[in-house]
């Protein structure tokens, strides 16, 4: 199973981020989410979604998805990480596909426009 994100479908609502935060913290919080909406380029209307996985960062940009290997390309990652939130993505736990949740991947369940899918 793998999470796929269609950044052009995304409406930047942050529901996935909060859903992942809930999965991590059993409450509503954003600090531990491993999926985040990057939204600092507000004046440019440039937004998408970042997902921290075991080995890499999946960066779903409007123009397409990019995968960056952790530990290989950090120097170019810094601006994206700064986008994510006060807690850099690389310090967060990787996506575990919500394996302990009966409801399944929470980000997939809560995305209102089905921009996130779980593919076999």
């Amino acid at each position: 199973m793998a999470i796929q994100i269609d950044a052009l479908k995304c409406i930047g609502c942050m529901a996935c981020e909060m859903a992942c935060g809930y999965h991590r913290d059993d409450g509503f919080a954003l600090l531990s989410a491993c999926i985040v909406t990057y939204r600092t380029r507000e004046k440019k209307d440039y937004f998408g979604v970042l997902l921290k996985r075991e080995e890499d960062l999946l960066i779903a940009r409007p123009e397409g998805t990019e995968i960056k290997r952790i530990g290989v390309e950090e120097e170019t990652d810094s601006s994206q990480e700064a986008d994510a939130s006060a807690k850099p993505m690389l310090l967060r736990e990787a996506c575990d596909l919500c394996k302990d949740m009966d409801l399944g991947p929470m980000c997939v369940r809560f995305c209102p426009v089905d921009a996130i899918t779980n593919v076999e």
Binding site: I11, G12, C13, M14, A15, M18, D45, F47, P112, V113
Partner: peptide, 13 residues
């Protein structure tokens, strides 16, 4: 129009 976006956790952008 460039893109539409939503307020926090709001299904309608």
């Amino acid at each position: 129009v460039h893109r539409h976006s939503a307020c926090y956790n709001t299904p309608y952008p």
